[in-house]
Amino acid sequence: MTARYLGRKVATLALTLYVTVSFNFLLFHVLPGNPVQMLARSGHFSPAARVQLVRLFGLNHPLFEQYLIYLKNMLHGNLGFSYVYREPVTTVMGGAIGNTLILVGTATVVTIVVGVIVGVIAASRAHSLTDASITVGSLALWSMPDFFTGMILIFLFGVWTHALPVSGIVTSGVTEGLWAHTLDVGRHLILPALTLVLVNAAEFSLITRNTLVDVLVEDYVVTARAKGLSRRRVVWGHAVRNAMLPVITAAGLYVGMILGGAIQVETVFSWPGMGLLIYNSVEQRDYPVLEGCFFLFAIAVIVTNFIADLLYHLLDARVRRT
């Protein structure tokens, strides 16, 4: 990898970030009116108290000056001050990021593993009843909105059998040791994670199945079979490997999408992650928090793309030559 290539990529990265940050600022600041009015009406604030808040939130400066202050704060890692919680946005977002990573991380790993396994089973029994059931089942689950699947799970496991907690990330009021706490979080994690898996696994099972069906008729698979290898070794050892490329592409896209896409699931299960934070911040018009969240998502996508660019460069000779 040349220094010039890297330099060009970093410069693009910096420019993209700047544009994103500026757009992010404009998005919330060009809206007419100001959010303090809302707080004042519901908080019974007097006109004088309202003026105080306007000053506190820095909304008394001209727009361009607010923009410069915003940029300066960004450079210092200061994402602003939440209108609602009266705390730095980084503090407000801190806990939510961790909770989302727990949910989305678990769900993503399970989704991909389950999706691929189910896809392989379907492909290796292509056009059988098993294959048809898997395909139809996957499509059915995939086409269900995730909040609806979530509600069904709540009905089955929460209301009907009381097997699992259906709301929150911990049992409220319980303070126990680390191990008990982890188990508690684990129990709360099952239903929201399962919802994400059920809805999204189809994406991977269908891609795997279709790719693998094509691969399984390739010459080298026939050769492998002719060598007398077991069916399992042929499928898993030879065919699946080669069918994985589209799955990896899909996984990359999926990770970027699901960060924000867990909003509905987090809302249904009252899971205090980024999705719920965004939902609540929209409801409460907590613009600095929304700016912070969007900024984080943008960073995630931009950085992921940057890494992907570098990886392509390393892996694919054709990219290197251009």
């Binding site: 519901s42 509600m151 409801e283 018009r285």
Partner: peptide, 27 residues
């Protein structure tokens, strides 16, 4: 003002879940 509007699911599933609670095992 800033009503916490539950997602569209509320009305749709209220009926279904209401029935469920009447089932045995809901202790």
């Amino acid at each position: 003002l800033s009503r916490r509007r539950v997602l569209a699911l509320s009305a749709a599933t209220a009926g279904a879940i209401g029935t469920a609670a009447a089932l045995p095992g809901a202790a």
